[in-house]
C-alpha cells in the first residue's frame, strides 16, 4: 500500500508539465551561459525581478484567457480591453477621481465587457472567436472615441506606485502576479466552480447532464477574461504612467501564446493554470534574454515563433506515442 502511494505522489507532476519545466529551466540556463560568454549579466536578482515585471501584464491577462480557453472558447478582446482601461482610467484620473475608485470602475468595466462577450457566446450561441473578434473592434473604436485617439499622460506619481512600489525590496507587481495565480489555481483545482469549468471544456453535454449550469458558468469564464484583462490594463497604465489608445494591440496573441506554451489545449478541458504562468515567464525570459544578447528584432520573433510550436509539439508527445 505504501509503495502505491509513493508512485502516486510522484506522478502528480505529469509528463507534459515536466517537459515544460525542463524547457523553462534549459532556456534559463542557456541564457545565463550565453550572456556570461558575451560579458553581460542575465542571472542577477535585478534581472529576475525585471523579467517577472515585464511579463506581469501578459501573465495576469493570461489567467483570464486560460479560464476561457479551458471552457473551449477564446477571447480575442483582451488586448483591446487593455487599451480601453488605459484611456478610460487615464481620463478618470485626470478628472480628479481618486485612484482606488478609478481602479474599481475600470475593473467593473472589464467585467461588463466580459459579461457581454459571455452572454453572446453562451446564450447567444455565437462562436466565441466571432463575438470577441467583434468586441475587440468595438472596444478599440470606443477607446479611440473616448479621447479622439489621443494619448493621456501627466499622471500623479501615486499611479506608478500601484505596481512599482516595493515591499521588502520585492516589487509589488511580482507579489500581485503570484497572489493572483495562487488564488486562481486554488479556485480551478479546489472549488466546484473550477471543476465545472474543466468539465464544460471537456464535454459540455455531459456536464449539463451532471447538473452543471453550463451556460452561466461559460458566461462567467468570459467575465474572468474581462476581469483579468482590465487588471492587466491597470498594470500597464501604472507601469508606463501613460495611456496610449493603441496600447495592448496584439496582446491577445501574446497571451494565447503564453497559454498554449503552458500546455492548455485550445479545445478546452485540459491543462493547468499554474503552467500558464510558466508559459508567460518563458515568453518574458525569451524577450528579455534575446534583447540583452542584442539579437535583431526579427530573429527574436522567429525564435519566439519556434518556441510556441516546439512547446505544443512536446506537449503532444504523448498523443503521438499513443498512435
Amino acid at each position: 500500500m505504501e509503495k502505491v502511494n509513493k508512485t502516486e505522489s510522484f506522478s502528480k507532476i505529469d509528463i507534459q508539465s515536466l517537459a515544460l519545466y525542463i524547457g523553462a529551466v534549459l532556456i534559463f540556463i542557456t541564457f545565463t551561459i550565453l550572456c556570461g560568454a558575451y560579458g553581460k549579466s542575465f542571472f542577477t536578482l535585478d534581472n529576475m525581478k525585471n523579467i517577472i515585471n515585464q511579463s506581469a501584464v501578459i501573465a495576469v491577462i493570461a489567467i483570464g484567457q486560460s479560464i476561457v480557453i479551458l471552457t473551449g472558447g477564446i477571447d480575442l478582446s483582451v488586448g483591446s480591453i487593455v487599451g480601453f482601461v488605459g484611456i478610460a482610467g487615464g481620463l478618470l484620473l485626470k478628472s480628479g477621481m481618486p485612484l482606488m475608485m478609478v481602479i474599481g470602475v475600470v475593473i467593473i468595466c472589464g467585467c461588463i465587457i466580459g459579461f457581454a462577450n459571455g452572454y453572446f457566446v453562451s446564450f447567444g450561441k455565437v462562436p466565441a472567436f466571432i463575438v470577441t473578434l467583434g468586441s475587440m473592434q468595438i472596444i478599440h473604436g470606443l477607446t479611440m472615441v473616448l479621447n479622439t485617439g489621443r494619448p493621456v499622460s501627466g499622471f500623479p506619481s501615486e499611479l506608478r506606485m500601484v505596481v512599482s512600489a516595493k515591499i521588502m525590496g520585492i516589487p509589488i507587481s511580482i507579489i500581485y502576479v503570484f497572489l493572483l495565480y495562487a488564488i486562481m489555481i486554488t479556485v480551478m483545482k479546489k472549488t466546484t466552480l473550477g471543476r465545472w469549468i474543466y468539465a464544460i471544456g471537456g464535454n459540455a453535454n455531459a456536464a449539463k447532464l451532471a447538473g452543471v449550469k453550463t451556460k452561466q458558468i461559460e458566461m462567467l469564464a468570459y467575465v474572468f477574461g474581462g476581469l483579468f484583462a482590465s487588471i492587466g490594463g491597470i498594470f500597464l497604465l501604472s507601469r508606463l504612467s501613460y495611456a496610449d489608445p493603441n496600447a495592448g494591440m496584439g496582446y491577445e496573441l501574446d497571451v494565447i501564446a503564453a497559454v498554449v506554451i503552458g500546455g492548455i489545449a485550445l479545445s478546452g478541458g485540459k491543462g493547468s493554470i499554474g503552467n500558464t504562468l510558466v508559459g508567460s515567464l518563458i515568453l518574458g525570459m525569451l524577450k528579455c534574454g534575446l534583447q540583452i544578447l542584442n539579437v535583431p528584432v526579427y530573429f527574436q520573433t522567429i525564435i519566439i515563433g519556434i518556441t510556441i510550436i516546439v512547446a505544443v509539439y512536446l506537449d503532444k508527445a504523448k498523443e503521438r506515442k499513443a498512435e
Binding site: 474543466y198 468539465a199 471537456g202 464535454n203 453535454n205 456536464a207 478541458g269
Partner: peptide, 11 residues
C-alpha cells in the same frame, strides 16, 4: 451516449 453525454473523456 457515453461519449457525448455520459463522460468527459479527456478527464
Amino acid at each position: 451516449d457515453r461519449k457525448d453525454e455520459g463522460l468527459v473523456l479527456i478527464h
